[in-house]
Computed example of a mutant assay.
Amino acid sequence: MSQENKTNEQAEEQEAKLEQEFTAEEFSPEELAGGGDEVAALKAEVANLKDRLLRTMAETENVRRRAEKDKADASAYAVTNFARDMLNISDNMRRALDTMPEEIPADLKAFVDGIEMTERELLNIFERHGIKKVDPKVGEKFDHKVHQAMFEVPTTEHVPGSVMQVVAAGYVIRDRLLRPAMVGVAKGEVQKVDTEV
């Protein structure tokens, strides 16, 4: 039996017990006739206790749900700090591969292949743990939720506010941003003002 079912059953048993205690008390007709104030006071007390019980049960349920959500978040995002540190390794591998010359000597070919395989495996491991790469394309609209503008480039070739250059890819872990993609953003050319009259 789950903890939630046990809690619900216990609360229902307590509520039934309280109701039974108050309804089990028998009053004589004289007490009922002369003690209308007492009966009203007892009924008010029962209603008050029932209200407090229901509020306590609701609060307990809210605490339980919050604890479950915190536990799920802790499990889902436990690797966040470690993943953030690993991003630097991924970036350095990509930089090393980007600086390789077009023509690779035969004696270095196996070395380069090893670095490429290591990078692919690292990205696969990221994927398995819910870490996805945010790799914007040139011309894509700048999105402040996943991009960070590093600089602006005055240009007429691209729409202002679009990505001009990608400095570093970004990453998300599940639905949270791990690191924004660092980009250069297109800026409209400054309009020249005609000062001649």
Rank of each mutant, 00 (worst) to 15 (best):
N8Y: 06
N8T: 06
E9M: 10
A11H: 04
A11R: 02
E12R: 14
E12F: 07
E13M: 13
Q14N: 13
A16E: 08
E19S: 03
E21H: 07
T23E: 08
A24G: 02
E25F: 05
E26G: 09
P29L: 05
E30H: 01
A33E: 08
G36C: 04
V39Y: 08
L42N: 09
A47N: 12
A47V: 09
N48P: 01
D51K: 15
R52W: 05
L53F: 07
E59M: 15
T60S: 14
V63H: 05
R65T: 08
K69I: 08
K69T: 09
D70C: 05
A72T: 03
A74Q: 06
A76G: 05
N81V: 00
D85H: 11
M86T: 07
M86I: 04
S90T: 04
N92C: 12
M93Y: 15
M93F: 15
A96S: 14
L97H: 13
D98T: 11
P101T: 00
E102L: 06
P105G: 07
P105L: 08
D107P: 03
V112L: 09
G114M: 09
G114S: 15
I115T: 08
M117G: 13
T118V: 03
L122G: 08
I125T: 06
I125S: 03
F126N: 01
E127N: 14
G130V: 05
K132T: 09
K133N: 08
E140G: 10
F142P: 03
H144K: 12
H147V: 02
Q148N: 04
E152R: 12
S162M: 01
V163C: 09
V163Y: 02
V167M: 10
V167T: 04
V172A: 09
D175I: 02
R176Q: 12
R176S: 09
L177S: 03
L178S: 08
R179E: 00
M182I: 10
A186H: 07
E189G: 12
Q191D: 13
D194L: 14
